[in-house]
Design a protein around this nucleic acid. Structure first.
Lengths: 344, 344
DNA sequence: GTGAAAGCGCTAACAT
DNA sequence: ATGTTAGCGCTTTCAC
């Protein structure tokens, strides 16, 4: 059995409240008593039971984090960011993996609510966030990351400007000479996918490039999806010369299909995407992509949730849109361009 | 304010115990009352407060997981495995990142203990596990992964046979013709590093290849470490023709240094390592490495911790050693061998 | 400065 | 079959 407040108190023949006082540095306590208590605390290696504290204080100091895919490096970094903030503030992180499954996500939001978490950071699947109402009712703040719910009005979030990022990425392709453009994106009921498609369309429109619907593919944000979609696209008579993949996994799958078909990247088909992190440039061809500041997204989301928890009354809504970074490498085919033409 | 058991009870003019009974399906409850209670529960959207339950039952149904590096893909997969088991059993996962920092690890073990977690899965830094005694005393089971503490006798763990894995990897290098062998490993006060070094030494000894101490480098399990160590090694007059890196990050760093020096992999120096996962073989040269079944390590560790929690009295110690898989690719230089010679 | 006691929301004897 | 009550370990009024 582990030692409780009561044990310390009876050992010293004083009341639990006094012991509690010195532990929490509350009120005045006689210097001598304080000393004796501290000694006893140390002697018995006393550690307050956080569950009891939570019940009493009605605060678990736990923050929930639900991501759609743990194995995606992007989310690993987000997790890292949130975790760092939590630790720093004495909060713990309850990590959940919805695995792109709406139902599992629902189970988790219920589960965490019941566990009385102090705040939730979530990258939702789809566009619905039915749990929001219950969280609001329970007074638990929620911060969205990566993908936004349809009710964007009163929610806090940390995202990047996907329309802009996608548009820039596409414009880059156009600048290096591509005009037969295709895109592979995720589920269209998600804001990320939708916005990335919009940005792409915008760039095409601005450059008077017609949209070929046959070159628009949608699936899940998974490698297999990218592979299958690209395989299908490759069966067409006319092929695009450049593909924008809405995330790294889709790009990997698409590249796999392209190479398997005996085509070269970027010579035959260029491929660019989001978040193709490459530790040392070992990947060939090096992938041109838009990099989201993943860890920073996590940190900022963590900081927002902390502010919301500390000041639960606030009506301030924090909507953060970060700038992604366009990293121009090889897979876009820039080296194939004779000269100039790619000025920023 | 959220609705409590008491609210439901007074709404129905019955006692809390009856309500509690139907919630937990305990004892006999009149069919009619049960129905009325269920209706009220539904009407008020009642959800039991898990903190109160935890305090009462003295079980938080939370499992702690401390990893030394969230951003390492190996640990991402371990996390995924543990998380899956936890979810399935209604447990939550408290994830912590020690970031290879012994002190932070200590803070976390204390922190989680205080939070009354039901079990701990940990990949420790170094070889000491001072917290073990306190956990044992508190009756909280611990399962080690990846790296083992010096007190191996009574602890449960899930690892791979690092000596064997490293030996096989080295033997493979020797088979394809290398005899000037170097190694870059992690901190020698960790069993992983130590065992990987031992396996390497063993292979050399078996093949009567002398150990050149100048070709043994040790550092942290980080890319930068691999980079600096390799840079140093490259300044020597005589260079090894093959390097074994004890993890993927060390390998990436080493490869970076090698290429930066204008040398080719594997022509000038071959590099092999542990856990160089490659989604679609885009990395050039493709890295020959020993792959640990990361997700499985997580699942098994999760299952063990569950068994220990369920049956806290058991004296059965579970020591699991999994088989890693040797994946032969290009970076070992196998293609440079004229013919045969590489039979398994 | 210190102690007694109520209570956080729940479960489980123990009564009835 | 249902209600009463005593805690789980802690914090915090409210007396003294």
């Amino acid at each position: 059995m582990t030692v409780r407040l009561k044990d310390i108190a009876s050992y010293l023949n004083i009341s639990v409240s006094t012991v509690s006082r010195v532990i929490n540095n509350r009120d005045r306590v006689d210097e001598d008593t304080r000393r004796r208590v501290l000694e006893a605390l140390d002697k018995f290696q006393y550690r307050p039971n956080e569950v009891a504290r939570s019940l009493k204080s009605k605060s678990t100091k736990a923050i929930g984090l639900i991501v759609p895919g743990i194995s995606n490096y992007f989310f690993s970094m987000v997790i890292k960011g949130v975790e760092a903030v939590a630790r720093q503030q004495g909060y713990c992180l309850m990590l959940c993996n919805s695995d792109e499954d709406k139902e599992r996500e629902g189970d988790y939001t219920d589960f965490l609510l019941q566990r009385q978490i102090s705040g939730l950071v979530i990258g939702i699947v789809g566009r619905e966030a039915g749990f929001l109402e219950r969280y609001k009712h329970a007074g638990i703040p929620v911060v969205f990351i990566d993908n936004l719910p349809d009710v964007e009005d009163n929610v806090d979030y940390v995202v990047i400007d996907n329309v802009k990022a996608s548009r820039e990425l596409t414009n880059h392709l156009i600048r290096v000479g591509h005009s037969k453009l295709g895109i592979i994106t995720g589920p269209l009921d998600e804001s990320v996918s939708d916005e990335r498609l919009k940005g792409w369309q915008k760039a095409l429109a601005e450059n008077n490039i017609p949209v070929n619907k046959k070159w628009i593919g949608t699936g899940e944000f998974k490698q297999e999806s990218g592979y299958r979609i690209m395989q299908g696209m490759l069966k067409q008579e006319e092929l695009p010369t450049a593909i924008l993949a809405a995330n790294n996994l889709l790009a990997y799958g698409a590249m796999h299909a392209i190479m398997e078909a005996g085509l070269k990247i970027p010579e035959d088909i260029a491929v660019v995407c989001f978040d193709a992190i490459d530790f040392i440039g070992l990947i060939k061809p090096q992938i041109t992509s838009v990099i989201q500041p993943a860890e920073q997204i996590g940190t900022i989301a963590g900081e927002i949730i902390m502010r919301k928890i500390q000041n639960t009354k606030t009506k301030v809504v924090e909507k953060i849109t970060l700038e992604p970074v366009l990293e121009i490498k090889e897979s876009c085919g820039i080296r194939l361009v004779k000269s100039g033409g790619a000025g920023s």
